[in-house]
Design a protein around this nucleic acid. Structure first.
Lengths: 216, 216
DNA sequence: AGCCTAACTGAACATTCAGTCAGGCACAAG
DNA sequence: CTTGTGCCTGACTGAATGTTCAGTTAGGCT
């Protein structure tokens, strides 16, 4: 059925295909989605997909540049505006980009090659933004600022990649509007404001790490 | 080629099949692996796989119970011994379980149904262990202990799911021996000992959250 | 020896997939 | 009216996949 399109869908076939593909790729994966399914969703013949995008791989690349490009643009915009409160916040500009986060989650999970470049850019941007944040007193200083920034990015992206588990365990919707991620924010801010380790544990952890350093 | 097996591999066919399947499933995904490939790896006919496991799905279930069961057992053992330093540490008992973490990573990424039960158990265990830790002074108290524990678990599992990115960005190998994850530990302990938010930011964050709470 | 069972195989099977091909249809330009 | 020129389609192909099936081999038991 062409659930993706209203009865009178005057968008061009190419747009409907791209839309259906993004949705299917996001929740079934690329390998788990056939061109037939996408064609049916878009109310279009399978041959038209190949006509427009050359191949399934071509369609995948088109989806990647569409979605990942949009995310990239938002990241740059957020960076330019100097917003830096939460890495997640970079993405959560909702509306027509409703499909962006699930698509990103699936791309991360599949280890899609095109997502590597995006993650690398996010990494650079996060390291830079957090250095700024330390400088202007938003964040506390760190002995390992780069590692700290990257781990925080990994945690944020990892939570997105596991958003189904997050929803099940916490009842928080990481792909939806800000209000939906309240439970997640509670846990995250708890950890990021006061930390987790007590005074007693800090030394033990520090010792364990220096021991590891010497072992290598 | 039967790279998985030494020239004189006297293990039973069933074992070789299971071993090859776990390896292939872990790094190509279930859908991305054909029975023919597994059969070739194990030096066995394709029909033998079906003979032993009934179907590809049967083989998948066998792999799941094998690996996820092993992880489960280690978790229970760690819980019984009262170790609770790091959730990751629960898994890192290496040796013959070298394939466990990559397999878990792939299962998490694919959203395999059998991993849901395991994650739920890990969640219960984490919540419980962290409550203990607060009681005996290992961890600092929290306003939202459950959310905090679950977010920490999600972060840990998310990092495993994204271990390729972790390796690329941080040079840390989350699936290997403890020494390999040093850069990750540095960033993580930095965040978990001192937190991230400065005094100035705490109030802003707290305000933002209470505002979200009222909006709903 | 005869028998039974489990391990194992090669060949064939039906299905699904991405991709090809020849052509229809609408509409604008000459 | 004729000639394109995009957009689009149904019918088709070759390759790959999971599964079935008839049969072979080996070893233990009576």
């Amino acid at each position: 059925m062409d659930a993706a399109s209203t009865p009178a869908d005057d968008r061009t076939g190419r747009e409907r295909i791209l839309d259906a593909a993004i949705r299917r790729f996001a929740d079934q994966g690329v390998d788990g989605t056939s061109l037939r399914t996408i064609a049916a969703d878009a109310g279009v013949s399978q041959a038209l997909i190949v006509h427009h995008f050359g191949s399934k791989e071509g369609l995948r690349e088109a989806c990647d540049t569409h979605i990942l490009g949009a995310i990239r643009a938002q990241m740059r915009q957020a960076a330019a505006e100097g917003r830096d409160l939460d890495v997640l916040e970079t993405f959560r500009r909702r509306q027509e980009h409703a499909a962006a986060l699930p698509y990103l989650a699936r791309s991360l999970a599949e280890g899609a090659p095109s997502v590597v470049a995006l993650v690398d850019e996010l990494a650079d941007e996060t390291v830079r933004a957090m250095a700024d944040g330390v400088e202007n007193g938003t964040y506390v200083p760190s002995e390992h600022p780069r590692e700290r920034a990257l781990v925080l990015l990994i945690w944020s992206l990892g939570a997105i990649a596991l958003h189904d588990h997050v929803r099940r365990l916490l009842g928080a919707d990481l792909t939806g509007d800000p209000a939906g991620l309240l439970p997640y924010l509670r846990g995250a801010t708890d950890l990021l404001t006061d930390g987790l380790f007590s005074e007693a544990l800090r030394d033990r952890v520090r010792d364990a790490i220096t021991q590891l350093e010497q072992e290598r």
